[in-house]
């Protein structure tokens, strides 16, 4: 019957924590790079810059319209056949690149939506006192838009943390890979996956808590 080896599960926890670092590092780096790209895309799209703007639409369409796993395999296994430079690319970096590009597509839409939700009177007031479009964006529009975008961006970050588990498929030893390894060597699949799911859940609950704190702080006006 139900045979849950608690001892084994508890022994797994410190091991998990060790690989949690990889997961957290991959997620944070993805968020930083992805968010930077997302802002650039959103601003280019909003300013309707010639040539670049339609290219960004294609970019977003591609990364939103295809599975993350397929993108990961395409870069790491597929494109490496065409561009030999990519063979030197580590699995971690490959995962970081694909996760960043992918999450940027989603986050850029969240930011663009938030910018569009700001009353256009705000921009007019900026221009009327002599600001340039970019000054207005930086000083007035983006600070308001970021606050609007926080819930959607937090969702994206949560998705990044969970999606980072896919990196194990190309050989990054992060939390998921470690759980898989331990499960296979001990045949204790139940314990390994229960523990990893709890760790993810805990990690993301902490993120959710930080999100509410952040929203509270930004809600001063």
């Amino acid at each position: 019957m139900i045979d849950f080896d608690i001892q084994f599960a508890i022994r797994l926890i410190p091991l998990m924590m060790q690989y949690l670092k990889v997961t957290v590092m991959l997620s944070i780096l993805t968020m930083v790079i992805g968010l930077t790209i997302a802002f650039i895309i959103a601003l280019i799209t909003d300013a309707k810059i010639n040539i670049l703007s339609p290219l960004m639409r294609i970019y977003v369409s591609f990364f939103r319209g295809t599975p993350l796993l397929a993108q990961l395999f395409l870069l790491y296994f597929g494109l490496a056949q065409v561009f030999p430079v990519l063979i030197k690319l580590s699995a971690f970096n490959a995962a970081l690149i694909v996760l960043s590009l992918n999450s940027a597509a989603f986050m850029s839409e969240a930011i663009r939506g938030a910018i569009m939700s700001i009353d256009k009177g705000q921009m007019e007031a900026c221009l009327s006192i002599g600001m340039t479009y970019w000054q207005a964006m930086r000083r007035i529009i983006l600070p308001q838009a970021i606050r609007m975008a926080i819930p959607a961006l937090s969702n994206s970050f949560i998705n990044i943390v969970k999606s980072s588990s896919l990196a194990y498929t190309i050989g990054v030893t992060e939390m998921m890979a470690m759980a898989q390894l331990e499960a296979a060597s001990s045949y204790r699949y139940l314990e390994a996956f229960v523990v990893i799911i709890l760790v993810y859940w805990l990690l993301i609950s902490i993120l959710g808590h930080m999100q509410s704190k952040l929203e509270l702080r930004l809600n001063q006006y």
């Binding site: 009353d119 009177g121 705000q122 007019e124 007031a125 900026c126 221009l127 009327s128 006192i129 002599g130 340039t132 000083r139 007035i140 600070p143 308001q144 606050r147 006006y221």
Partner: peptide, 20 residues
């Protein structure tokens, strides 16, 4: 920009900067 530096506008809906 020169023109806007010598004119100023007061709007029907105020349009104060909400984050300031």
């Amino acid at each position: 920009y020169e023109l806007r530096k010598s004119t100023a506008m007061v709007f029907q809906n105020f349009n104060l900067f909400k984050n300031k």
